[in-house]
Amino acid sequence: MEQLHPSPEHHPEPGNWPTPETAYALAPSIIREIGWTAQTAADKPFGTALGREFWLRKAAVLDRIALAGEDAGSPGDAREVATEAARRLMDLDDTTVICDPRHYVRQQYIHWAKHQ
């Protein structure tokens, strides 16, 4: 599996965060992403760590689920779960960015999607 690195944009200006619509414009369906993350986790050999792509895509799909709940007026626990997954990605990236973790996921996802 190719090692993916965080984008070089670790000190962006607050106004430079992509909107969810922009960040996820190239994203597969939520169902497809759930399937990809589940299959990737299931296929992982015991004792090996999941890579950055897994954590980025998992955080992004959870963010998208949370956004759908927020738009429907019933975020439930999705917002908290999405934020925790985003923090996991930030920890993995050892980033110095101080921001809403979900904004960081969107920025990193758009960078990743454009370079596929």
Rank of each mutant, 00 (worst) to 15 (best):
M1W: 03
H5M: 12
H5Q: 10
P8C: 01
P8W: 03
E9R: 11
H11N: 10
P12G: 08
P12S: 12
P12V: 06
E13M: 13
E13G: 11
E13Q: 14
P14K: 10
G15M: 10
G15S: 14
N16A: 14
W17H: 13
P18W: 06
T19K: 14
T19C: 08
P20Q: 13
P20Y: 08
E21P: 04
E21G: 05
T22A: 15
T22F: 08
T22S: 15
T22I: 14
Y24I: 00
A25L: 14
A25Y: 01
A25V: 10
A25Q: 15
A27T: 02
P28E: 12
P28I: 02
P28D: 13
P28G: 11
I30P: 08
I30D: 03
I30H: 07
R32K: 15
R32N: 08
E33F: 00
E33Q: 12
I34H: 03
G35W: 06
G35A: 12
W36S: 00
W36H: 03
W36F: 11
T37Q: 04
A38E: 14
A38T: 15
Q39P: 02
A41K: 13
A42H: 05
P45Q: 10
G47V: 07
T48R: 15
T48C: 07
A49R: 15
L50R: 10
R52V: 09
E53P: 04
E53I: 04
E53D: 12
E53C: 06
W55P: 02
L56C: 09
R57N: 11
R57V: 06
K58G: 03
K58A: 03
L62C: 06
R64H: 03
R64N: 02
I65E: 01
I65D: 01
A66R: 02
L67G: 00
L67F: 06
A68M: 09
G69K: 04
G69E: 02
G69C: 05
G69I: 01
D71R: 15
A72E: 15
A72G: 11
G73C: 11
S74H: 13
P75D: 09
P75E: 10
P75V: 14
P75S: 10
D77Y: 06
R79G: 02
E80W: 09
V81W: 10
R87H: 11
R88C: 10
R88F: 06
R88Q: 07
L89W: 03
L89Y: 05
M90E: 12
D93C: 06
D93G: 04
D93H: 14
D93R: 03
D94Y: 07
T95I: 08
T96F: 04
T96R: 04
T96M: 01
V97A: 12
I98T: 12
C99L: 03
C99T: 13
C99R: 03
D100E: 07
D100Q: 06
D100F: 03
D100A: 07
P101L: 05
P101Y: 01
R102S: 10
Y104V: 04
R106S: 10
R106I: 11
Q108S: 00
Q108C: 04
I110P: 04
I110F: 07
W112M: 12
H115L: 14
Q116C: 11
